[in-house]
Design a protein around this nucleic acid. Structure first.
Lengths: 194, 194
DNA sequence: TATCAAATTGAACAACGTTCAATTAAAGCG
DNA sequence: CGCTTTAATTGAACGTTGTTCAATTTGATA
């Protein structure tokens, strides 16, 4: 059987990614297999390889979608009044992580095989995310050189990331009883000079 | 063939873990397979299951060793003079991550299947690590309630973790040109109130 | 209507984690 | 020393995985 063309190639890609996302959201990285994704969209395993180079490629694309979704989730908070903006960004970040813990985990849990690095289109997505936050927080760091502003933003971003990673893998609770969100607010408050 | 007893069971466990560590240090999580570990120590795959419940169990044990090694690496810095202690802890942390990037990654990259959680002996290892840092830094946070001290320590720890994770997976460099270590120092300085 | 091109398949392969009956060597005993 | 018991070790086997690719079938083209 061949050339069903039930769906245009781009449409089919979307279907596959949606299927993968559904699996990932429920079971995490371990649940994503080529055969299961294919089965969910009613195609044979081989078809996946017409759409993506391999399973890693599919997962990287899924992570790209998640990055976009995270950017969307942060955008509203980035426009909040300056006084509450930082806190709202932190809350928006943790809201996202708590709503999609598995998808968010996948963002960092998945690693390409040695020697393979992230595709070129991935970098701008990440950069856009950071730029969003950097611009939103710039007014809150008026006395810093742009170099230091970037470093501060990156540190906060990495810090939130660390808190969330440990929380999601339930390693934070082993060590402290505080809510991840509270640590996030603490971090940002101190970083912005409190 | 059976009952070779070339090695006592504990000795054999050590051999298997050393083999797994060597593989992990070179190739990361993806390189660790039961068959390869078994081959490296000159035993059949089935033997691994006499020593560990399964591959996940073996990896958790390997991670336990890494936690111990990290604690050792931090201990010297924890005894440094109070003035430079925080900075030395940060340096010791990044020294460790840079020396064993793959082993350090494995600590967080590996996740148990859903429903399985970390064994009981794992928690004290993590707790010991945090306690080490918390006690070392306590003199630097004299004006904080013990509750806030714990939160601050956990935040710094998670922050360093986040910076390192992103650095090791080369996602930090996509976003900022600064050295991870520099961000670490920035984080700790601000968290300790400067 | 015949031809072409592209999409889709599914069998095949190697490698994986895991299980377990069979085997063998060491230990215990008379 | 020989016999029995016990426990360590094996390796074949099973089901599943990612990936490849020749074969096939359909939609479009001429």
């Amino acid at each position: 059987m061949a050339r069903r063309s039930d769906h245009a190639p781009e449409e089919l890609k979307r279907l596959a990614l949606d299927a993968a996302r559904a699996i990932a959201a429920e079971e995490g990285l371990r649940g994503i297999t080529v055969r299961r994704v294919a089965e969910r969209i009613g195609y044979a395993p081989g078809t996946i390889y017409n759409l993506f180079a391999n399973l890693d490629d599919l997962i990287v694309h899924l992570n790209g979608m998640t990055l976009d979704a995270l950017a969307d989730a942060l955008r509203a908070a980035a426009d909040a009044p300056v006084e509450t903006r930082a806190a709202q960004l932190v809350d928006a970040y943790f809201d996202f992580v708590e709503r999609w813990p598995m998808l968010w985990s996948l963002l960092f849990e998945h690693r390409l095989p040695e020697g393979v690095d992230l595709p070129d289109w991935y970098r701008p997505k990440l950069a856009a995310l950071i730029a969003l936050v950097a611009e939103a927080l710039a007014p809150l760091m008026p006395d810093l050189a742009s170099d230091e502003r970037r470093a501060t933003t990156a540190t906060m971003w990495a810090g939130l990331h660390g808190i969330s990673t440990l929380a999601v893998s339930s390693k934070l609770a082993l060590v402290v009883e505080a809510e991840p969100r509270r640590l996030g607010h603490l971090l940002v408050a101190r970083m912005l000079g409190g």
